[in-house]
Design a binder for these strands. Structure first.
Length: 549
RNA sequence: GUCCCCGUAGUUCAACGGAUAGAACAAGAGACUCCUAAGCUCUAGAUCCAAGUUCGAUUCUUGGCGGGGACACCA
């Protein structure tokens, strides 16, 4: 719909002012008195043409009013052009929804003739360290990453979901090892200031390892204790939760596997060859400042070990060069924002255009309980697991909560309040709309056994169908929203849209009698269409479309 | 000290640089002989401060103030 109008605008501007290149907005105004769509193009063109916005707007409006897609084209507010869509167009659009069903809005429908290859896109999200259960904060990346993947898939990307397991570093090989040993009462040196993982889960894992391998093995083994513990955590805690939260992955990639394949050595040689490494104070440094980083980074320590950065670079090499992804999107927490510089620099060193790497930085999630922040620390064993929260408030509510917030905003969750106020979670408002749709359709099925088959809705006009029109217009925003989010990654807009869609549906439902009304046929079609859209939206968010409540 | 994010009704969140700053919850009022009242309708209530950019700034720039996070030869 939007594309269509934009095209019409371009034609009109070309005809009237001979201008091809210009930018202007095309929005759905908040207030429907300003039409179904609105543009500011007259302001944009005012400078170029040296005419007043009003003059320009009137000329364009006059031209566009000739097109029968519009019922009315108006100039208002000193130069805005407001378009009122002809209801006949809306009738047709509903037919398209009913025909396309769950594919409505996907690229397959929008661009049938586009044979260009799908973009091969990787989304890495969650990637919680295998040193403990997933915490509350992991919910943000987990659910948003999952949702973004769904949106991108719908918009025509070839999506590959990957979880990166940090199983090769100190945290696992040293800290986790020691933590397990300590839990088993094995004597070991703990340096001052060194913090180990604690809490019940460590004890449980320690017992399990002891049972499997024997205490002797644990006592005389070093890093492999941690590696084993990480494996157990990944298997018994993380993968299990991920599955029950409805999150899917195409691949679980272990950092250790990159080491074993010799990818770090290989990437190291490439960097040496490109003269990107220098030696100073017995360590090796990477010249990341050459590509915009604020300082150079150590890449091999004076003890001869690669730093974590080397692993990241090998990972970039693996994803872009070996596995040939066109684009890689990575979700990271705000505590990693300082790494962006070196990652982008590394990309350029490897000859990878840096816009192929998209890093989404999510702000921190904090938990408040009894008025105080709960400091999450796997080491102290004080943390709130994502599982606890999901069990408390339910998966749908938890998903909605995390998905519905912009990544740039900080989230404080008051746990007491969250439980108490859970029944006010917007997700129920949305699911209630779904339940109402299903309920009406079920009733019709029972009485008449068959829902009318024809797919055309007619006789729409402003007088008798304000609520119907509002519903249709909202439905038609869905395809545009998918492509918008595929471009700007603002996943929270899906959640907002779901809420708005439910809202126009509730108002329609309350104001328009369906069964027994003279417009019954039309309204049933509307319900079927809105069910298609709402279910599509909920599917993207991984939230159940309830049939009953 | 340097860097990143945030500051909007009492509270939680919206608003590609656009028109009268939207919702929800909390407060107050209203409507069911009819498809689910977890819904609908109405009332009251907000842009942290100061300059700048321009037809127009919650949005962009600069400087404050306030909150959060990051600044390792750890990961």
């Amino acid at each position: 719909m939007k594309d269509l109008i934009r095209q019409r605008i371009n034609n009109a501007v070309k005809k009237k002012f001979q201008i091809k290149d210009f930018e202007c907005s095309l929005d759905v105004p908040d207030n429907n008195k300003f039409g179904d769509y609105s543009t500011n193009l007259a302001f944009a063109l005012a400078k170029k043409t040296k005419k007043s916005p009003k003059e320009i707007a009137e000329a364009i409006a006059l031209e566009m009013a000739k097109i029968k897609d519009f019922q009315k084209v108006e100039v208002a507010g000193g130069g805005f052009i407001n378009f009122f869509i002809n209801p006949a167009i809306l009738e047709k659009a509903v037919g398209e929804i009913l025909k396309a069903k769950r594919k409505y809005g996907s690229r397959a429908i929008n661009q049938k003739n586009n044979k260009s290859k799908k973009q091969k896109t990787m989304v890495e999200f969650l990637s919680a360290n295998p040193t403990g259960p997933m915490t509350l904060g992991n919910g943000r990346g987990g659910f948003s990453g999952d949702t973004l993947s769904n949106v991108l898939a719908l918009s025509g990307h070839n999506i590959f979901r990957e979880y990166y397991i940090n199983d090769a570093g100190n945290q696992v090989k040293e800290v986790l090892s020691k933590s397990v040993k300590k839990a088993l009462g094995i004597d070991l040196k703990i340096e001052e200031g060194e913090e180990l993982y604690g809490g019940a889960y460590i004890e449980e894992i320690a017992r399990k390892i002891k049972k499997e391998k024997g205490i002797e093995w644990v006592a005389k083994t070093h890093s492999r204790v941690g590696v084993l513990a990480a494996k157990i955590i990944l298997q018994n805690l993380i993968k299990k939760d991920v599955k029950s939260f409805g999150i899917r992955y195409d691949n679980w990639l272990s950092e250790e596997s990159l080491h074993k394949k010799g990818l770090l050595d290989k990437t190291w040689k490439i960097l040496i060859k490109k003269n990107m490494v220098y030696e100073e104070e017995e360590a090796y440094w990477l010249k990341t400042t050459k590509y915009g980083d604020d300082k150079n980074r150590v890449i091999k320590t004076n003890e001869g070990n690669y730093t974590y950065l080397m692993g990241d670079i090998a990972l970039l090499y693996d994803r872009f060069v070996l596995r040939k992804f066109d684009k890689v999107i990575v979700f990271v927490g705000a505590d990693h924002h300082g790494y962006l510089g070196r990652w982008y620099a590394a990309c350029e060193m490897l000859g990878i255009k840096k816009d192929r790497l998209v890093i989404i930085v999510m702000q921190i999630v904090r938990a408040i309980q009894s008025g105080e922040e709960v400091r999450m620390s796997k080491r102290k064993g004080t943390f709130i697991t994502l599982r606890e929260v999901v069990e408390d408030i339910g998966l749908d509510a938890a998903r909605y909560f995390f998905i519905s917030r912009d990544f740039n905003t900080h989230i404080d969750i008051d746990l007491d309040l969250a439980k108490e106020e859970n029944n006010r979670n917007p997700v129920y408002y949305i699911q209630y709309a779904s339940a109402r749709m299903n309920s009406v359709l079920a009733k019709v099925r029972n009485h008449k056994r068959r829902i009318t088959k024809h797919k055309k809705i007619s006789n729409l006009n402003d007088q008798n169908s304000k609520y119907e029109l509002d519903l249709i217009k909202k439905m038609l925003e869905w395809p545009g929203l998918i492509s918008e989010i595929a471009g700007n990654f603002q996943v929270y807009k899906v959640a907002n849209y779901a809420y708005e869609l439910a809202g126009v549906f509730h108002r329609f439902y309350d104001n328009c009698r369906i069964i027994g009304d003279e417009r019954e046929k039309e309204r049933l079609l509307l319900i079927r269409a809105s069910k298609i859209i709402l279910e599509s939206v909920l599917r993207v968010m991984g939230i159940e479309a309830k049939k009953k409540m």
